[in-house]
């Protein structure tokens, strides 16, 4: 069972049970909806900027433990970052969870607990849904993003 525990670490259960920043931001500077048609996960991500820095970011929706925990951890990681820093973090995170190795994995901080999904190709989309939705919010895409 040891490797299953690598996927489902205690931090993930904690964020699944008590998601952080699980609320609507009204008004938000940017928002986007994301959808994973495969498992029915859906999420809305809200972002607020203050002088080029993310001052608040939150989410609503429903999903599996991996996707809920990932969204929750993402909101914690993004606060205080500039748009460029946020995108760079996503790039790092994305390559870590898709097992492409990452240049600056030590910069992932708490997000590292999610890198276990690299061993579960069918679950990678759960971990990245919130992030894809966040970048769609940055890009102000009108269409909901989907992982398919």
């Amino acid at each position: 069972m040891s490797d299953l525990r690598e996927l489902y670490q205690e931090v993930i259960f904690d964020h699944n049970r008590k998601p952080r920043n699980f609320r609507k931001l009204d008004p938000a500077d940017r928002l986007a909806e994301g959808f994973n048609p495969l498992c029915g996960d859906q999420i809305t991500v809200y972002v607020k900027f203050d002088q080029g820095v993310i001052s608040d970011v939150s989410f609503e929706g429903s999903g599996c433990a991996i996707s809920t925990a990932s969204a929750s951890l993402m909101t914690e990681a993004l606060k205080g970052k500039t748009e460029a820093e946020a995108r760079a973090l996503f790039e790092n995170f994305h390559s870590a969870v898709t097992n492409h190795g990452c240049a600056k994995c030590d910069d992932l901080g708490k997000l590292e607990v999610l890198t276990g999904v690299a061993e579960y190709p069918s679950r990678v989309k759960c971990a990245t849904l919130a992030w894809h939705t966040f970048t769609a919010a940055l890009d102000q895409k009108d269409q909901p993003v989907t992982t398919e």
Binding site: C39, D41, Y120, R123
Partner: peptide, 9 residues
């Protein structure tokens, strides 16, 4: 518990 988590476990 989301079915997806059930399936993986």
């Amino acid at each position: 518990i989301h079915p997806h988590d059930t399936g993986t476990i």
